[in-house]
Design a binder for these strands. Structure first.
Lengths: 240, 240
DNA sequence: GAGTGGTCTAGACCACAAG
DNA sequence: TTGTGGTCTAGACCACTCA
């Protein structure tokens, strides 16, 4: 029987995932929805919601009339692009030890293009945070964050940016709901190459993204460059 | 294979999306789930499923206690990486006229790495298809497809590859269910630069992906290079 | 307090796979 | 034919927003 702390669906999802990791379903076949519902004492709808979420994660797949099965390939995925929320977690998922270095924190006035993207007037002040993420002490991600100072209600120090940026926003009353991200190829130039310890002229993948809050208002612009020799950017593409 | 009728949920989703595009919800606020259910003569559950799919697409967003609203930013997204299924559609979504050119079709024996990725023995024969996708007659995507010949049951000609590759697989009794994709930065070299009409040394984004069928068996390997000055690769990243 | 979306139930019927 | 997942219903209660 389950208790009502997290939603029943989330508990059921976690429970089933644990059963999978514990190798309870030896032949790769997961118990039927009806059985799972009876086992956990919840309705079949709740079980179906839980299984749907595991299916989206790629952990299982379903075949109508046949059953629900473990997806071994999906279980191997270390980190999925559309689910990354903190780069520390991403580095950790690749089995490196993550660490973070704040390169600089300062306030600049918004250039025209950034102001437009963030729905601001040109010249409005922006907090600019440059962060370097390291995997086993090797620099692997360089990130620039631009936050309108108008959103910042709390005083802060550099140390506040050692944590993921969504925590800083949260402390200022803004919940980061989602990013709209664009993938942009990049050539490493002198400074970038030096910071990331790669030779100049190497191609890199970068993200250019805008983060929105629950009210769909842009609250942050962020760009990040990745060393793909350390980190693999993966995603699942499904038939719509 | 087409279904006789679309599910009520899909119909409801299409109906609501049309209402949005028709500007029926002038203030950006969508009618309540109860109202929509009554209007369409279906249960609230069906409406909720339809709205959930629109929310995943980024078309709307919901706020508990407040209502459901149109997401203008989401409506602007031309094509999302995790939903692309044919490159023709992707080019079309960017308002270019798509066309396709078959560069070559031949059979080669699988090198060790490819064989491992496709669960084959080394040296097993692979059908290799090189395709070029054009936007307004400009080359924008170069794609390599590798298909184990063991899967091919029908005879074929070059013309069969003018259509998306999943249609060729379907004709051979294989349904392409999903791709596991990796994003890899690339430097344009001589031949690639010439084919895509870009200068050598330019950084590009490429996909390296493996396609699986419903039984989770790898059936195709595919790599594609994109001219990002024509095509923007976008995705939505949400808090897990 | 009224109305909204979020969760959950118990049950029904259908489409499909496999023995 | 049996059992599976896929769809859908009608109704309940809760958490939350907003006037």
């Amino acid at each position: 029987m389950l208790k009502r702390t997290l939603s029943l669906t989330e508990q059921a999802k976690a429970h089933i995932k644990q059963l999978i990791l514990d190798d309870v379903f030896v032949d790769g076949r997961i118990h039927s929805e009806t059985d799972l519902a009876a086992d956990l004492g919840v309705s079949r709808t709740t079980i179906r919601d839980a299984l749907s979420r595991l299916e989206i994660e790629g952990v299982i797949y379903r075949k109508q009339g046949a059953g629900t099965f473990i997806n071994p390939a999906g279980l191997q995925i270390k980190s999925r692009l559309d689910e990354i929320w903190s780069y520390e977690d991403m580095i950790d998922a690749h089995d490196y030890i993550p660490s973070t270095k704040i390169l600089s924190v300062n306030v600049q006035s918004a250039p025209e293009d950034l102001a437009a993207e963030l729905d601001l007037q040109p010249e409005e002040p922006l907090l600019v945070v440059r962060k370097l993420f390291l995997a086993d002490r090797q620099p692997v991600i360089l990130a620039y964050n631009y936050i309108p100072t108008a959103l910042i209600t709390q005083s802060y120090t550099e140390a506040d940016f050692m944590h993921p940026v969504f925590e800083f926003l949260w402390a200022n009353g803004q919940r980061l709901a989602y990013y709209l991200s664009e993938i942009v190829p990049l050539l490493t130039t002198g400074e970038l190459a030096e910071t990331l310890h790669v030779r100049p002229g190497l191609p890199l993948v970068s993200f250019a993204e805008i983060g929105y809050n629950d009210d769909n208002i842009p609250i942050i612009k962020s760009t990040s460059c990745f060393r793909d020799d350390f980190l693999r950017l993966r995603l699942i593409r499904r038939k719509p």
